[in-house]
Amino acid sequence: MRLRNAMLAAASAVALVLAVPFSANAATGDFLYKVGPGVPVGLADPQSRECIDLPWTTEEDPGFAPENRTQSTATVFLDFGCSGDVFYVMNPGKKLGDRLKLRSVVFS
């Protein structure tokens, strides 16, 4: 009887673990910015803890005016590859002006 109860408890624990959804490891929401002559672009549900070089940004024309509409903190960098001394931390919901230039981002 005890063995059957132990097996039932173990099977129930395994079923419970499998029923809980796993984290998608994404920053839920949108990260928006502008490029070129103010054309709005963005990332939908970007990957977390991974550097993202922003599409449509170049050495000559960085992105600007970012809006962090995700549920994660975004750290934006002036340089590609999330490197360099120029960066800014954006909390969820933060919107910055045209003066902030960026080329890459990483989400918490």
Score class of each variant (00 low, 15 high):
residue 59 E to S: 11
residue 30 D to M: 14
residue 94 K to V: 14
residue 104 S to D: 05
residue 8 L to Y: 10
residue 29 G to P: 03
residue 90 M to A: 12
residue 26 A to P: 11
residue 77 F to T: 05
residue 92 P to F: 04
residue 102 L to A: 03
residue 93 G to K: 00
residue 13 A to K: 08
residue 54 L to V: 00
residue 95 K to A: 14
residue 37 P to G: 11
residue 94 K to L: 13
residue 41 V to N: 05
residue 103 R to K: 01
residue 38 G to E: 01
residue 67 E to A: 13
residue 7 M to A: 11
residue 96 L to F: 08
residue 104 S to A: 07
residue 64 F to G: 06
residue 81 G to T: 00
residue 80 F to H: 03
residue 94 K to A: 14
residue 41 V to C: 04
residue 3 L to D: 14
residue 76 V to F: 08
residue 88 Y to L: 15
residue 13 A to S: 12
residue 38 G to Q: 01
residue 10 A to R: 11
residue 50 E to V: 15
residue 14 V to E: 07
residue 81 G to Y: 00
residue 41 V to G: 03
residue 33 Y to P: 03
residue 78 L to P: 09
residue 38 G to H: 05
residue 87 F to W: 15
residue 52 I to W: 04
residue 100 L to C: 01
residue 39 V to W: 12
residue 8 L to A: 10
residue 33 Y to S: 02
residue 72 S to G: 07
residue 83 S to L: 06
residue 30 D to C: 15
residue 68 N to M: 02
residue 5 N to I: 08
residue 27 A to W: 01
residue 14 V to I: 08
residue 8 L to R: 10
residue 71 Q to T: 11
residue 2 R to W: 13
residue 90 M to Y: 11
residue 49 R to Q: 14
residue 52 I to H: 05
residue 83 S to H: 07
residue 25 N to Q: 10
residue 107 F to S: 00
residue 75 T to F: 05
residue 94 K to P: 09
residue 27 A to D: 01
residue 55 P to W: 01
residue 34 K to F: 07
residue 77 F to D: 01
residue 38 G to V: 02
residue 50 E to W: 15
residue 57 T to H: 04
residue 44 A to T: 15
residue 5 N to P: 06
residue 43 L to Q: 02
residue 54 L to Q: 00
residue 57 T to Y: 03
residue 78 L to C: 11
residue 26 A to N: 14
residue 79 D to C: 09
residue 96 L to T: 07
residue 81 G to P: 00
residue 67 E to V: 11
residue 46 P to H: 06
residue 52 I to Y: 03
residue 95 K to V: 15
residue 13 A to L: 13
residue 77 F to G: 05
residue 12 S to H: 09
residue 60 E to G: 13
residue 3 L to P: 08
residue 98 D to L: 13
residue 105 V to R: 04
residue 103 R to C: 01
residue 25 N to S: 10
residue 85 D to P: 10
